[in-house]
């Protein structure tokens, strides 16, 4: 399933979407950046409530296909501009991380 399809299916809000056609192969949930770096796999959807600028570097380096900000968390415009430039997809959802993870798990 692509990032675009997941956005449409679950009504996520796209905040930065430079690569909508990227495949989502699974997911990882976590807010500690080094844990994410160490454990998330390439093409995962990364579900987090962390929204500072460092998520862009972590998402880019660990090569996840999309960052899903849970619980209605948003990111400031500087973060989103950087994400656009670096080719990092970021979406937002009002759902808690657990609920998002369940939906992603059922879809991929």
């Amino acid at each position: 399933m692509t990032v675009q399809q997941i956005i449409e299916k679950f009504n996520f809000s796209p905040l930065s979407l430079p690569c909508p056609e990227r495949e989502v192969s699974g997911g990882y949930t976590g807010d500690l950046l080094s844990w994410v770096m160490g454990r998330a796999s390439q093409d995962n959807a990364w579900i987090t409530i962390m929204s500072n600028i460092n998520i862009v570097a972590v998402a880019s380096l660990s090569d996840v296909s999309v960052v899903i900000l849970a619980e209605g968390v948003s990111a400031d415009s500087g973060v989103l501009e950087t994400a656009e430039q670096k080719g990092v997809n970021i979406v937002s959802s009002e759902l808690p991380a657990f609920e998002i993870a369940v939906r992603i798990a059922d879809s991929v």
Partner: peptide, 11 residues
């Protein structure tokens, strides 16, 4: 900020 989990060197 999400750092300092003690995973840097192990990673």
């Amino acid at each position: 900020l999400g750092f300092g989990a003690g995973m840097g060197l192990p990673n």
